[in-house]
């Protein structure tokens, strides 16, 4: 059975009729795989994972047919029950490490807190384990870092601490929400390398939320492309890069600066992501899509699992004509 099986997840803010931020998303993630979720800002990548973690607050409304994680339906799990899973089997690393750590507590305290809550470790045992975790995330001189406060650490160091906190409960699924966006370029590669080596070492499943396609190409095996709250394409890594099926995926790839070499301007998709007042009746990309036909503006395509490549499009690209 898959580790994570999200079925028809929608997240709205306000009331039931509000425009969904995440719109009917279904996603399956197998044990031990690395999945990347890509999409521009506001496409619902983070909110999807926050919904899974139970971090969406009122006025956010979450609806789904099911949200199976490791045999539990996270949607129907009681708060107390969910807290036993979140932070232990299901952990998350956030975007900005400089604000993600509590400024009032030492690094050691913040790591030991997880060990106490989920593994029942206290005192010396917890400290020992926290030290091991700092070693695991390759922090130099870990003994002295245990008593350091977050403001004494650099961004990259803080992110390593955040990762140590996340893997403290030996999670089955680690969600990394743009873990390198706030960091220097040189540090970015180190953090990605660390995440991947931890993933292999612990045979952990990794969901990587990013808008950096270069990172995706190097790390993930499978990609989910999101646009305006919907998954528009699910594909394997080399294929999706070589032969994107969805026009939006194609546009994303075209916008990579290296692909525009020699051109005067970067390739872009005209228009904007539809908002709350201009959400199209048909396919959400139809106002911007260069291939849009009349029926694209009338009906919304579904993500049909029977097709060769999973794309939410009536006229997928790069398909062999049967």
């Amino acid at each position: 059975m898959a580790l994570l099986d999200i079925n028809n997840l929608s997240v709205r803010f306000g009331d039931k009729n509000a425009v969904p931020v995440v719109d009917g998303l279904s996603l399956t993630v197998e044990r031990g795989e690395v999945l990347a979720i890509v999409g521009e800002s506001g496409s619902g990548k983070s909110v999807t994972m926050m919904a899974l973690m139970g971090l969406v607050d009122a006025p956010g409304i979450i609806t789904a047919d099911s949200m199976q994680f490791d045999g539990n339906d996270m949607l129907r799990l009681g708060r107390r029950q969910r807290r036993k899973v979140v932070g232990k089997d299901l952990a998350m690393v956030f975007q900005d490490p400089m604000t993600a750590l509590n400024p009032s507590y030492t690094v050691g305290f913040q790591i030991e807190e997880v060990l106490r809550a989920h593994l029942g470790l206290t005192g010396k045992a917890a400290r020992q384990r926290a030290l091991e975790l700092l070693r695991k995330v390759e922090i130099p001189a870990p003994e002295s870092r245990l008593d350091a406060y977050p403001h004494q650490l650099s961004g990259g160091m803080s992110q390593r601490v955040a990762i140590a906190m996340a893997i403290a409960g030996e999670p089955k699924l680690l969600i990394a929400d743009e873990p390198t966006t706030a960091l220097d370029v040189t540090i970015q590669a180190q953090i990605m390398e660390l995440l991947l080596s931890l993933q292999k070492e612990q045979n952990m499943t990794l969901i990587l939320i990013t808008h950096d396609l270069a990172v995706v190409a190097e790390t993930a095996r499978r990609v989910c492309v999101m646009y305006a709250g919907q998954a528009v394409e699910l594909g394997q890594v080399p294929q999706l890069f070589d032969e994107p099926a969805h026009p939006y995926s194609e546009a994303l790839l075209a916008a990579i600066p290296e692909h525009s070499q020699g051109a005067a301007r970067l390739a872009t998709l005209p228009g904007m992501v539809p908002g709350r007042y201009d959400r199209p009746h048909g396919c959400l990309l139809s106002p911007r899509c260069p291939y849009a036909q009349a029926n694209c503006r009338e009906q919304r395509p579904a993500l049909d699992p029977k097709r060769q490549s999973l794309a939410r499009c009536f006229y997928p690209l790069n398909q062999e004509v049967a």
Partner: peptide
Amino acid sequence: DYIRTARAKGLSPVRVVFVHGLR
């Protein structure tokens, strides 16, 4: 953000509010 981190650790609401928030 660190309140979100605390919640993502699976800590109890009382601990999140008083230990991480009120402090």
